[in-house]
């Protein structure tokens, strides 16, 4: 078990290193941030001076080496634009993004799994068909389009919900104030709908497969009440593949906060990364990607460990 975790951590370390190198290289090739940071009438001396201050005067390998040296001290460099440590810039905005992603994930799990089970139990009947039709629409509607339609209906036409910003924030989150909740509703629904639809589809197909198995027939034959058969025996087994997908989907959710945050002017990392790419703010882009990759990897690790809890057959040796 410990060996497995250590192996994974080492593998993760290599992947993160590769990611930092690739991003560093792409950003290095992309252009000169100094041109964007200084006014157009800056003198040559100012350009040279600025390039030196930002550590951009060496060759690519020199720059990457000094990045690695800083990294070994837990420092991801200073943002070219904000003049603050890049990691701090990212971490300050991370709660706003995680708040959206976590709430959207919870929403889609809490609604998606029951709906998927209902759709599987009622396959072929109107109830099952209606749920599957809804989920087909859900996976087919682009995230940005959902956001726009919600804004059109709830902000432009009826003026019920605010279309931008986070509202009142209390203890890192908007979810604890009434104003914050009103701001949260549309971004969270926008982000959740696609995941919700996927979870419904996966639960439904998983449950339909499981419900034909012998042990389900046996449980029914023993006279167990139907809800115990479906949720106790059926869902438990259908959940196993679902856990992986939900884990992987969380990474997708974080990525799609880029779109949601753009539509709703949400002050999180999604807006930050768009701005930073445009400003060629390399330290922030690298820091953002490393943080996201790390979250992704940790989730995958948790998913693998959860496996062993749900299904003893998967127990790691």
């Amino acid at each position: 078990m410990l060996r497995f975790i250590l192996d994974r951590l080492f593998h993760t370390f290599l992947v993160l290193l590769a990611i930092s190198f690739i991003t560093f290289f792409i950003m290095y090739k992309a252009g000169d941030p100094v041109q964007l940071l200084l006014p157009p009438d800056a003198t040559q001396a100012q350009v040279v001076q600025m390039r030196h201050t930002l550590g951009l005067d060496g060759s690519f390998l020199t720059q990457y080496r000094s990045f690695l040296v800083q990294l070994s001290h837990g420092n991801l460099g200073t943002s070219f634009v904000y003049g603050e440590p890049a990691l701090k810039v990212v971490m300050e905005r991370l709660p706003a993004t995680l708040e959206l992603a976590v709430l959207a994930m919870l929403l889609s799990i809490l609604i998606g799994i029951p709906l998927g089970v209902i759709a599987a139990v009622n396959a072929g009947k109107w109830k099952g068909k209606a749920i599957m039709l809804f989920s087909l629409a859900g996976i087919s509607i682009p995230v940005f389009w959902i956001g726009m339609v919600l804004v059109l209906i709830f902000s432009v036409l009826f003026d019920l919900l605010p279309s931008s910003g986070r509202g009142e924030v209390y203890l890192f989150t908007s979810a604890l104030t009434w104003d914050g909740i009103r701001h949260l509703i549309m971004p969270v629904v926008t982000l959740a709908l696609f995941q919700l639809a996927r979870i419904i589809r996966l639960t439904q197909s998983g449950m339909r497969e499981v419900l034909t198995q012998d042990y389900i027939k046996f449980a029914r034959a023993r006279g167990l009440p139907e809800h115990k058969v479906v949720y106790g025996h059926g869902l438990r087994n259908a959940l196993i593949p679902l856990v992986t997908v939900i884990g992987l989907q969380f990474g997708q959710l974080i990525a799609f906060t880029i779109v949601t945050e753009t539509i709703f002017a949400w002050p999180g990392t999604g807006k930050l990364i768009i701005d930073s790419i445009q400003n060629l703010d390399r330290p922030v882009v690298v820091a953002y990607l490393l943080v996201i990759a790390l979250i992704f990897v940790v989730i995958n690790l948790i998913v693998d460990l959860l496996y062993t809890l749900i299904d003893p057959r998967m127990r790691l040796v």
Binding site: K29, V285, F296
Partner: peptide
Amino acid sequence: LSFPAILIALIVMAL
């Protein structure tokens, strides 16, 4: 695969 596709495509296109 340790990165969401949209993020990679976004960075490639932006730069």
